[in-house]
Amino acid sequence: MPDDQKTPAIWQYKVVQRVLSSYTPPAAQFDPAGAWEHTYNIYFLNIRAKKGKGKGAGAEVNPNGILKLSSAPKGGEIELLVESTAFMTGDQTSARIRCKNDALRSPLSWEISFTNQSPTGKELVTFSKTGAVENGVLMKDGKPAKGMKPLSAYTCDWSLFDAVQRLTLQKSTAPLTFDMIEYLDVLRENQTLRSRGATPIPCAGGNVDAQEYLQFGDAVLPTHYYVDAGGRLFMALGSRRLFVLVDEKA
């Protein structure tokens, strides 16, 4: 790319544009501090593009799974419910998370369960476990997790979907720094989240005015979050996974 050209945005990747070409923002008002439910299609971006005019070339991009997040204030805290389903592999992860009502929606305690089914519906693997952060110590099934440092500012990957909707970060302000408990199990340290400012993103009904936030950190490929003017996270893209909002309930 010539030096005098602006760096393209990641949503200009044509597979993302194809998905966004059918995205229409919800018409209703949205209150990120209230009770809400968001359902996202998860697209696992392909290694190689289909070329030419053969089968699959330029075809519609099909989702590989669903992520449903429900958030609601509860006794001064936030309760976050998670359901993640893969379409082809038959696995389902469910979590109920008590979060602090703070900027990062830091998880306080949780229950998580996993089920996998064969194509015929037979359960192959199923189990549940619990976790918590107590005095900065990550606990798993009631025991301190091995070899982990005390946590101060921290969140989990699912909480971040909630947190970015209420951020007041400006492009000029210092990034947030925190650790992230991925899948409520794997500690990813040295995370940062910064604002990249406003950007118009072309979607089905015209441009969506979005605030862009960008996450870097250990074991995390640059991850972009896009929040519309109503305060809803409508797209996230990092590594090979693309999340696009498909349903909203208040």
Binding site: I42, A86, T89, L124
Partner: peptide, 15 residues
């Protein structure tokens, strides 16, 4: 065990 080995790319190694 678990997912069909042909399809494990869909949601990552956590599955």
């Amino acid at each position: 065990l678990g997912p069909d080995p042909r399809n494990t790319a869909s949601l990552g190694d956590i599955v």
